[in-house]
């Protein structure tokens, strides 16, 4: 009894909505990075098992929490596609020495350079490589699935930095509006029958235009209602600030561009490229911060940062550390 109570309390502390949306995304990203960098099947399976266990343990009854089966099916699909690809578009390179079986091979030419060879010798090592690579991508997908099943997407929009406030508002307006729009599309589609006329793709005009006119009307009302409540006030922001935000943004973009080039190029160390990209990431965050300075809004009911979040952050850091130092290789 006591143990059960204890477990229930533990579960409540770590339930999906008690943890900050950002923490879930951090964990998901670190798991995705770890899976992306490893070729060790056990690590990959461990990542998938861990993600599933966390989802099972922490999830609550919310519409977005049921999506994990979608990610599982997608992961299985990726592995299957990888294996089928291996079988069908086999590489006719040097003969492998661990042939499992041989399919009658077909070769066809599309008039583009090399011949495409279908089927042929299937080796154990190539199938294993395909399997592990598929598993790696499934693990990335499931890691993202973890964040998506545990974090409320609306909360994520609410906690966007204020440089992206307008866009986040447009997106949450769109999410609120979608069910109403589905209803009005159905309404207009039925009304359309009363007018008579074409069906299929051609009828889309008679449906889209009235709905669009309605929604535009509605959007201007919405804008009036937002503005009348104070949306659109701007704090004083000096020219220097604007200029420096622009410059920071530019440098972040430039750094990432150079980083991408170096990462792709033969010459140059990939460590330097990665360093540049990390720099770009930092500058990007700085840009967002700079652009957020001007706003004069306050935030009612900011998402709470409970101590349990530190556990998630610690796990994420550990996973990331192991991945970057090659312990998962």
């Amino acid at each position: 009894m006591g143990e059960k109570m204890h477990r229930l309390g533990f579960r409540r502390v770590f339930s999906a909505s008690k943890i900050h949306t950002g923490s879930w995304w951090l964990l998901a990203l670190c798991l995705a990075i770890a899976s992306g960098l490893t070729r060790n099947a056990f690590v990959l399976l461990a990542v998938i098992a861990f993600a599933l266990a966390v989802i099972k343990f922490c999830r609550e009854n919310a519409p977005w929490s049921r999506s994990i089966s979608f990610y599982l099916r997608l992961g299985a699909f990726v592995i299957a596609v990888r294996l089928v690809f291996r079988l069908v578009f086999n590489f006719a390179g040097s003969a492998p020495n661990d042939v499992l079986f041989t399919l009658p091979s077909v070769s066809l030419s599309l008039g583009l350079g090399n011949q495409v060879v279908l089927f042929g010798d299937v080796s154990a090592s190539s199938m294993l490589a395909a399997l592990i690579d598929g598993l790696r991508l499934s693990a990335i997908i499931i890691a993202i699935g973890l964040a998506n099943s545990l974090a409320n997407p609306r909360k994520l929009l609410k906690s966007t930095p204020s440089a992206l406030y307008e866009i986040a508002t447009a997106l949450s307006v769109a999410i609120n509006l979608a069910p109403q729009l589905i209803a009005s599309l159905q309404r207009v589609r039925r009304a359309r029958g009363l007018r008579g006329g074409s069906s299929g793709l051609g009828s889309l005009r008679g449906i889209v235009i009235p709905v669009l006119e309605d929604t535009i009307e509605q959007s201007l009302q919405l804008a009036a209602s937002m503005d009348a409540r104070g949306f659109g006030r701007k704090g004083e922001r000096g020219r220097g600030e604007i200029l420096s935000a622009r410059l920071a943004g530019f440098s972040a973009v430039a750094l990432s561009g150079i980083g991408v080039y170096l990462l792709l190029a033969v010459t140059g160390s990939s460590a330097l490229a990665l360093g540049l990209l990390v720099g770009a990431l930092g500058l990007g965050a700085f840009t967002v911060k700079l652009s957020s300075l001007r706003k004069t809004r306050s935030k009612f009911r900011r998402e709470l940062w409970l101590p349990a979040n530190w556990v998630i952050v610690a796990i994420s850091a550990a996973v990331l550390g192991c991945a970057l130092t090659g312990r998962f290789a």
């Binding site: 447009a170 307006v173 769109a174 979608a178 889209v208 959007s219 201007l220």
Partner: peptide, 17 residues
């Protein structure tokens, strides 16, 4: 501005639907 934002919101919603 609020007007662009509102029109963006409805067009995004319409498009998504």
């Amino acid at each position: 501005g609020s007007k662009q934002l509102a029109i963006l919101g409805v067009l995004i919603a319409l498009n998504a639907v």
